[in-house]
């Protein structure tokens, strides 16, 4: 299992490699990237910050939950970026491997969906005329 936060660019190939397993016929990956607009506003860049110790703890738990739900999971790799990211940069990579493809899609989606709900990481969107902490206010 590879669970990591980093303030350096994510090496996507290395994360995929970490998910590879000899017993797996499928490696499935989600790559989250920075897009140039949000709710109609032009995004210039994003700033990510994390509560590192809790984020790593919660990420490990999400990976363990995935293994409980899909016991055939061979490997789980999750790397999330911190710091300032520009348009097109990779913010997160989730990669899993399973013997067959169907479970790899489901497990990968579960991990990224749950990550977004529970892992203490925050992003601030910077626009040409201001900035907002995403989801902070109703």
């Amino acid at each position: 299992m590879l669970i990591q936060l980093t303030d350096q660019p994510i090496d996507v190939a290395a994360v995929l490699q970490a998910a590879q397993a000899d017993g797996a016929g499928a490696v499935n990956a989600f790559i989250g990237t920075i897009r140039n607009q949000s709710t109609g506003r032009r995004v210039v860049r994003l700033h990510y910050e994390a509560y590192d110790q809790m984020a790593l703890h919660q990420l490990r738990r999400v990976a363990e939950q995935a293994v409980e739900k899909w016991p055939m999971l061979q490997q789980v790799a999750v790397v999330h970026r911190k710091g300032t990211l520009e348009i097109g940069d990779v913010a997160v990579v989730v990669a899993v491997s399973t013997p067959h493809r169907a479970e790899s899609f489901a497990a990968c989606q579960f991990i990224i969906d749950t990550l977004k709900q529970v892992v203490p990481i925050w992003k601030k969107e910077e626009y040409e005329d201001g900035s907002v902490w995403v989801a902070a206010h109703p």
Partner: peptide
């Protein structure tokens, strides 16, 4: 958050706990 877990409203705090405020998360 208390010691890396989401706390319940009725949980009691202790001086040595690792306590943090967790506003709406937005990772990914």
């Amino acid at each position: 958050a208390v010691n890396n877990e989401y706390a319940e409203p009725t949980d009691r705090l202790h001086e040595r706990d690792d306590v943090a405020l967790i506003p709406p998360v937005s990772g990914g």
